[in-house]
Design a binder for these strands. Structure first.
Length: 413
DNA sequence: TCTGGGGTCCTAGGACCC
DNA sequence: TCTGGGGTCCTAGGACCC
C-alpha cells in the first residue's frame, strides 16, 4: 500500500503576479490589486495609449493614496506586504499604511485564463485535482508515478517548474498525509517554496502554530478559544475531546480535536456540482429605499438579469430564489422563496425576488443588494426537465403568498 | 474614509407526513 | 384524552473560505 500523499498548491500573490506579467516594470514595487470602482487603469492607459504596456513608466501608474472609493485589497505583492498591507483589507486603511503603493483593478478575464492554464498544466502531470477557487488546488500524489519520491518533493518540484514554464508564475506547495496538513504546509515556504510533512511532524511543526492556521477556525472561533486560554493548535490538542464537545458542540468540537491532532480523511474531490449562483453589489454610496427607489430598482433588475445569464450560460436552473441586503450598519438580512418549477428566467427571478424584498424591513439605508438562485439542477437533468417551466409562478401560487406585514416594510418593488 | 463578491456548510425551528 | 418518534422540506442566520 502506498502512503497517502496529498499536496496543496497555492499560487503566489496570484492576482498581482498576473498583472506583473503585463507590467514587468512594476516588479519589486509595492502593488495592490483591488477596488476598481475608479477606473484607474483606463485613465492611465488613455494617457499612454501609444506606448506598449511594458514601456509605460512606473511613475505613470495610479497610487493608492489617490484612490477614492469603497473596496478591499484582493492581493498585495510581497513588497507591499512589508508595509502590513494584505488581502481583505479596506483600501482606505491600506492607503494609510502604504500610500505610495501602485493600485490596479482586477482583470477577471485574465485571472481566469491563467487559472485554467496552471490547472491544465498540473492535470497533465497529476490528474486527481480538487479545485479550491481560482488560485488553489489540492492534488492527490498517492498513485502518481514518482509521487512518493522524497515524500512528494520531487513531484512538487516538477509541477512548480512546469507551471513556471507555461505561465511565468510561481507557486508554493505543501505535501502531507492529508488535505488539512498539506494546506498548512503550503504556507511554510512562501513564495515559490515546497514543504514536505509527515504524520510524525505534527507535534513539532503544527502544534506551535496559532489556532487560526487551521482551515476552518475563523475569527469567531479564535476569540472563543482565546477566552478559554487556548492559543496554539497544541493547546487544543491537549484538551479532552469531551471538553471540546461540551464547549463547541458535538460536531465542531470533535472536528477541532481531530484537526489539532492532524487527523483528516477527506478525499480529494475531483468533481462537484454548484449549489447556488448569486450576484451582489455594494453601492458607491448607501442608498435609501424611498429617495433612491429608481436607482435601486434598476440595480435590482440588473442583478436578476446577471444571475439569469450566469445560469443560462452554464446550463443550470434553480427553484429557490432569494435576496440579500446589507444595511448601512453592516447587518445582513436574507429572504428566500422556493417555487414549484425550476427556472433560469430573468423575469421570473425578478418577480419572486421582488416578493422576497417585500418581506424585509427597508427602513435603514442599504449598502448592498444581492440576488441568489439555489436548489440548482442541470437544465438537461430529469428532475429539471420534469419541473422546468419558463413562466412566472401561477396566479394561484402568488395569491397564496403571505401578506407583507413586517413593520417598516415599504411597498416598493 | 473602515469592511468586496462569490461561494459552501451548519444549525435550528416549524410545517407536514407517516 | 394523552402521548410518541422519525424524516423531509423550507426558511433565516451565521461561520468560514478564497
Amino acid at each position: 500500500m502506498p502512503l497517502r500523499r496529498i499536496a496543496h498548491l497555492d499560487m503566489d500573490a496570484f492576482f498581482a503576479s498576473v498583472e506583473l506579467l503585463r507590467y514587468p516594470q512594476l516588479k519589486g514595487l509595492p502593488v495592490v490589486i483591488g477596488g476598481g470602482r475608479r477606473k484607474v487603469d483606463e485613465m492611465m492607459r488613455e494617457q499612454y495609449a501609444e506606448l506598449p504596456q511594458g514601456e509605460i513608466p512606473a511613475s505613470a501608474f495610479p497610487l493608492l493614496k489617490d484612490y477614492v472609493g469603497r473596496g478591499v485589497i484582493t492581493t498585495a505583492t510581497y513588497p507591499a506586504r512589508q508595509f502590513g498591507v494584505g488581502s481583505a483589507m479596506g483600501m482606505m486603511k491600506a492607503a494609510k499604511l502604504c500610500p505610495q503603493a501602485i493600485v490596479l483593478p482586477v482583470d477577471f478575464d485574465e485571472v481566469r485564463r491563467f487559472s485554467r492554464l496552471f490547472k491544465a498544466t498540473i492535470a497533465e502531470i497529476a490528474p486527481v485535482i480538487e479545485d479550491r477557487g481560482v488560485d488553489e488546488v489540492y492534488i492527490d500524489f498517492t498513485d502518481v508515478p514518482g509521487g512518493q519520491r522524497e515524500g512528494g518533493r520531487a513531484l512538487a518540484r516538477l509541477i512548480q517548474r512546469a507551471i513556471l514554464e507555461k505561465t511565468g508564475l510561481t507557486c508554493s506547495i505543501g505535501v502531507a498525509p492529508n488535505k488539512l496538513i498539506a494546506k498548512m504546509a503550503s504556507e511554510f515556504n512562501k513564495p515559490n517554496g515546497i514543504s514536505v510533512l509527515y504524520e510524525a511532524d505534527v507535534q513539532a511543526k503544527i502544534w506551535p502554530l496559532p489556532v487560526r492556521k487551521i482551515n476552518g477556525i475563523g475569527p469567531k472561533a479564535e476569540v472563543k478559544l482565546a477566552k478559554l486560554h487556548l492559543h496554539t493548535i497544541g493547546d487544543i490538542a491537549a484538551q479532552d475531546r469531551e471538553w471540546l464537545v461540551d464547549n463547541f458542540g458535538k460536531s465542531y468540537g470533535a472536528w477541532m480535536h481531530d484537526a489539532a491532532w492532524g487527523r483528516d480523511d477527506r478525499p480529494v474531490v475531483t468533481q462537484s456540482e454548484p449549489v447556488s449562483m448569486s450576484r451582489e453589489t455594494t453601492f458607491e454610496r448607501d442608498l435609501h429605499a424611498v429617495r433612491d427607489r429608481a436607482e435601486l430598482g434598476a440595480i435590482f433588475t440588473d442583478l436578476c438579469k446577471q444571475v439569469a445569464g450566469d445560469l443560462q450560460r452554464k446550463g443550470y436552473v434553480g427553484r429557490t430564489i432569494g435576496i440579500k441586503l446589507r444595511y448601512d450598519d453592516f447587518r445582513i438580512a436574507t429572504r428566500d422563496h422556493t417555487i414549484e418549477h425550476f427556472t433560469a428566467d430573468a423575469k421570473t427571478i425578478r418577480q419572486v425576488a421582488g416578493q422576497c424584498l417585500k418581506r424585509v424591513p427597508l427602513d435603514r439605508r442599504l449598502r448592498l443588494l444581492g440576488v441568489r438562485v439555489g436548489k440548482l439542477a442541470k437544465l438537461d437533468s430529469p428532475e429539471a426537465q420534469a419541473l422546468h417551466a419558463a413562466r412566472a409562478p401561477s396566479i394561484a401560487h402568488r395569491a397564496a403568498e403571505p401578506p407583507a406585514t413586517f413593520e417598516g416594510t415599504l411597498e416598493l418593488f
